[in-house]
Amino acid sequence: MSISPQQFDAARAVDLGRETLQIEAAALTAMGPRLGDAFAHAVQLVLACSGRVAVMGMGKSGHVGRKIAATLASTGTPALFVHPAEASHGDLGMVTPKDVVLALSNSGESDELNAILPVLKRLGVHIIAMTGGAASSLARHAHVVLDSRVDQEACPLNLAPTASTTAQMALGDALAVALLDARGFKPEDFARSHPGGALGRKLLTHVRDLMRSGAALPRVRAELPFTEMMREMSGKSLGVAILVDEEDRVQGIFTDGDLRRLIERGGDLRTLKAGDVMSKNPRTVRADALAVDAADLMEAARITLVLVVDEAHHLLGAISINDLMSAKVI
């Protein structure tokens, strides 16, 4: 059914959009007081599970179920989605007695889901139902029932799953959050399951992974003539010269900024030694530090490079703001 631009009622569209948000917000607000012992029992069942959470649902509930399974898996609870219709044709073998089933159905009367519930019970699998039908077939088979009922759908016809799927989604998030808290799940754990994301890069990338080292470092001794230091500095393209002693311990640093300030003061630079112009006590970081910590150090000190040293202050490497940007740590 097509509508011409002249027939389109913009004001009504905005009103319906706002009404949808209000209905769905009210549905979520109403669920809060209903959360109680059953929710706590569901969390306990999952925590005690030595297998995985097998999430099931048909239609829109299935789409929500896939998202819940993904959220659980990324927050420390092994989970997978099993399509109820495919389960009747072999995929039920994906579920073991060690698993917990989280079954979603707003009505609780999904034929494909109810057909496999007796088999799941014979397996000895605990079933958590997420349903709006407290007296439904699904609820009767379940060990725990999470009440996801809503007073009305946001659909003007009260037919299309809208508020009910929002309620399921939010209840799944609540379950995942309660579980990650109970497991003591930390940002580092989240990063390990998201190695390709921004958080993964920040929490899994260490300074040693990005630092320049070996021949790439412009090392010089304090007694080296200024002109020789500048030759070494220019050849390594780091914008610094690193002054070390005979045991390769860091003594100081000379930067492009230091050079500009020297030129502004004037004088014959050719008479100087590297040690005469170095800045002592340069900022340093350990190789096992997170790269994001090096970035924080640079930002706080308003510098673009830090040196990497060991416990005895031996020079191991250097890491610059460009290295961090190239690795998308910042």
Rank of each mutant, 00 (worst) to 15 (best):
T77E: 01
A73V: 02
L72N: 03
I68R: 00
L72K: 02
R52W: 01
G62S: 04
A42L: 10
P78D: 00
A40Y: 06
G76Q: 03
T71F: 00
A70Q: 03
S50R: 15
A42G: 15
H63V: 14
G51N: 03
L72C: 03
A73R: 01
M58K: 08
A38R: 11
M56P: 04
S61T: 12
C49M: 09
G59Q: 10
T75A: 02
M56D: 05
V55R: 05
A40M: 11
A42K: 11
Q44N: 13
V46S: 08
V55M: 07
T77C: 05
L45W: 13
A70D: 06
T71P: 03
L47C: 06
R66D: 06
H63Q: 08
L47P: 03
K60E: 11
V43I: 15
D37R: 10
M56Y: 04
S50P: 06
T75W: 02
M56S: 09
S74E: 00
F39T: 08
R66P: 02
V43F: 13
L45V: 10
H63K: 03
V64G: 04
G76D: 11
G57W: 11
P78L: 02
A54E: 10
K60N: 09
L47V: 13
S74T: 04
D37T: 13
T75V: 02
G59V: 14
D37C: 06
S61L: 11
L72P: 00
G57R: 12
V43N: 10
A42T: 12
S74K: 03
S50A: 13
A38Q: 14
A69P: 00
Q44S: 14
A48I: 09
A73E: 01
G59T: 13
V46F: 14
L72H: 01
G65D: 04
G51S: 08
V55Q: 06
V64R: 07
A54L: 02
A73S: 14
A73Y: 00
L45G: 06
L47Q: 13
A42D: 06
S61Y: 12
S61A: 15
K60C: 05
A48V: 07
T71M: 01
A40C: 09
S50H: 14
V53I: 10
T71N: 00
K60P: 09
V43Q: 11
L47E: 10
M58R: 08
A48M: 08
L47T: 08
A69R: 00
P78Q: 02
T77G: 03
G65T: 08
G51Y: 00
A40T: 15
M56G: 05
A69S: 14
A38Y: 08
S61Q: 10
S50G: 11
H63R: 05
K60D: 09
R66E: 11
R66T: 07
F39C: 11
S61K: 07
V55W: 08
M58C: 14
G76I: 07
A42M: 10
Q44A: 15
G76M: 08
V43K: 12
A38F: 09
G62I: 08
L47D: 05
H41Q: 15
C49F: 13
H41L: 12
T77A: 06
H41V: 05
P78K: 01
V64H: 07
C49A: 12
L47I: 13
T71W: 00
I68V: 15
M56N: 02
T77W: 03
A42F: 10
A69Y: 01
P78N: 05
D37P: 05
A69E: 01
V46Q: 07
